[in-house]
Amino acid sequence: MTLPAPKRRRLEKMAINMTPMIDVVFQLMIFFMLTLNIIAPEGDFDIRMPLSKSAGPPTDDLQLPPIRVRLTANPAGGLLAMTMNGEPVSGFDDLQQRVAGIVEAALASGGAAEDVELELDCDEDLDYSQVVQAITAVSGRIEDGRVIEMIKKISFAPPATATE
């Protein structure tokens, strides 16, 4: 008895070997997972402050005198008191409103917001976060979701004059 010759060419379902691809895909996934570092969004306050720069009387008549903001620290490093040009300020919102008034007055008199300078005179023991809050308050305000820039020229008082 002779068996019929087996059909060599018959339609077969081609099974692709997926193993190497899945291996590579998992390797890639592990690489991306391990190299992932979640970065919190950070921003800068740009300050241009050469060494010779110290707030003194304005060098020309058009230049406005700098606003002096003094921040006093309590023993724990928190904010004890704040003054602006010698006048007491109740808080950062109050400071923002006063600075906004000065900037608007400067704009009304034909100046530019860039002409207004501010000098921060802080106690050495004050927490830096308070300084950043003060800089935030004077550098701009948010109205209707838009940022309105106020003072750009911010400097720290030189140590020799960092006294009340």
Binding site: E42, G43, F45, D46, I47, M49, L51, E124, F156
Partner: peptide, 21 residues
């Protein structure tokens, strides 16, 4: 301020105070 002062003494003028947004 001392860090900024030392940087100024080395001739650096531009500073960026970084904060969390």
């Amino acid at each position: 301020q001392q860090v900024i002062r030392i940087c100024q003494e080395q001739g650096f003028e531009r500073f960026a105070l970084r904060a969390l947004y």
